[in-house]
Design a protein around this nucleic acid. Sequence first.
DNA 1: TTGTTCCAGCTTTTT
DNA 2: GCTGGAACAA
Length: 723
Amino acid sequence: MDVTLIIDSLNDAQRQAVTAPSQAMLVLAGAGSGKTRVLVHRIAWQIQVEDIPAHSILAVTFTNKAAKEMRSRVESLLNMSTQSLWIGTFHGIAHRLLRRHTKQAKLPDTFQVMDSSDQLRVIKRLINTLNLDDSKWPAREAQWYINAQKDEGIRARHMLDTADLHQRQMLRIYKAYEEICDRSGLVDFAELLLRAHELLRDNQDILDFYQQRFRQVHVDEFQDTNTIQYAWLRLLTDGKDNLFVVGDDDQSIYGWRGAKIENLYSFQKHYPNHQVIKLEQNYRSTGTILKAANTIIANNTGRMGKELWTATGEGEPCSLYAAFNEQDEAYFVVERIRTWINEGGLRSDAAILYRSNAQSRQFEEKLMATATPYKVYGGLRFFDRAEIKNALAYLRLMSNRNDDASFERIINTPTRGIGAKAIDDIRCIARDQSLSLWASAIVLINQRTMTARATNALIGFLELIKELTTQAPDLELYEKVKFVIEKSGLIELYQKEKMDKGEEKVENLEELVNAARLFDFDRENEEGMGELDMFLTHAALESGDNQGDDFDDCVQLMTIHSAKGLEFKLVFLVGMEENLFPSQQSVDDVGRLEEERRLCYVGMTRAMQHLYLTYAESRRLYGRESYPRPSRFLREIPSELIQEVRVRATINHPVTPIQIKNSSLQTIGSYKLGQRVSHAKFGEGVVLQIEGSGAQERVQINFKTAGVKWLMLAYANLEVLQG
DNA sequence: TTGTTCCAGCTTTTT
DNA sequence: GCTGGAACAA
């Protein structure tokens, strides 16, 4: 048997992890140390060398992208198809289990997955029906509360009633929410995990079956698992010591959404026979970048301990640029990128990483102004668009009439004369008699309490859905979708909508038809799902790759969070300022501050060749001018690893504001304090303060009409007035 | 039903 | 200070 292909390309630590005998194993894999490689080769090793059938292997990831990549890499390494190999996301695998055992999971056969925006809508509605003041009990908070409970494995019935009003109210909402979901056959993301856990926990036969089936269980990004995910993994591998996890405590950046870094420690306790392997050789970044990142992360406490190194040399120092303001920051970054491109670099090798999405704007403006193609990640995804969700709601209602979320979404979309009053009445009946909205609508019609017009409108809606259902079965999936969007009047609705907005929506609907046409349906799926249900699940569970178009050569703009797992030759980590990064909300709490530091570590380790860190001395924030301090993380980098960038070569003799204040006659350049000047846009004003020198020189001016402003002297084009 | 106005909020995100 | 959502008026 030829195993060279599997192990030859690995370093010692990687090979050790890949070829170790079956046992509990924790691979602490630093950034860029070949984490996925180890996972892929491990699976290949087990199939080819240890003769474990692909069918007996489970691999769990967090994103569909990671799952897809892992499968295709295993396939190309083994040069075979791996259909029977279970690789998927936690949610995808959980869903699969629930579909296979709907009865034991106490779910209707027609159950559907609801995404977070569906969930929020349901909760919003519910808060209204409970007659709660939604300003006092925001739906967002309730949603957060419910998901947090589920992530911990806690059902409403497990919770004790308390005297605390807030707690009581939340519990009440949680209870009512569970009822609606059960009645509608709807399962939210957290519910998938919780129910999959309960399924195994409460059904010994099912648990036995899967414990025997899965001889090996692999987990990617283990530091991101939450309580219920880890509990589920433990059930599956109970007493078998066959859990192989890969993770990095230093890259745990999702604590705020329930990820428990502690699971890494618990793992060591729960699997006493485990082996730990550290992957510390980095194949991505220069030595300097790694050193800087290592030093920063060393400030965190309670680490498992790990230091990245590289065999490929030091590289150049990290660059630090102190911008005057956010405009200048963007200007600088874009100029550097243009230079990079002019020198033959690819646009797609350059990335601008920021802490919060709002920061992207000024970079976009500058990129647009210089006609540099760019792509912002993290916007609305395809299946999240309102018009798509509307179309899907019709399809979902056809598949399951009890789907209240979908019912409510489209009962009057497009408008068909069913007003708030009628919908309210339906909701009342639903609440009082514990019926689905569909059933309640029928009750309402039979009551004959509404006006003839409203009754007819409602009958019309129910008939429409019935008609769609009866006429659709013989059609191909894409024909069904097409039929639905036409017959429902959705296409017409958006065609009438004015201008390009509506046009875009029509195009998106056409794209949905296309997606249905291309949908790869596995007729022999063991879950026995129909094509439509499968498509709907696909839409909920894989909300569409972030716009695709990886082929275009674009500058990459994204948050540091979304950059995790990616790498770029040229990285700009922008907005390195206190209260922005680390964020305002994190600075008072050691735990959260350490997570910010890990985020910084993640950001820096994205860079392969060049790392630029920038901050602005002045930034408009919430409409107010702020003068932030440079981020503490900057101070944590040894100064010999950093080179300060000056726009033009100038002699830097720092001028402290105190000196300026003390001498009202101090002259810097051609300006002095109290000097009257005129600006093309802001008009006449008086110089209040002067800071910096050369190209960085900036002046604070009190304009007669425009107020006090800081201006960059190099760009301001001030005219000196006499007197 | 649509357009306007008002008001809160203002990290990070996948499933 | 801007944005998106909800309330309200016409």
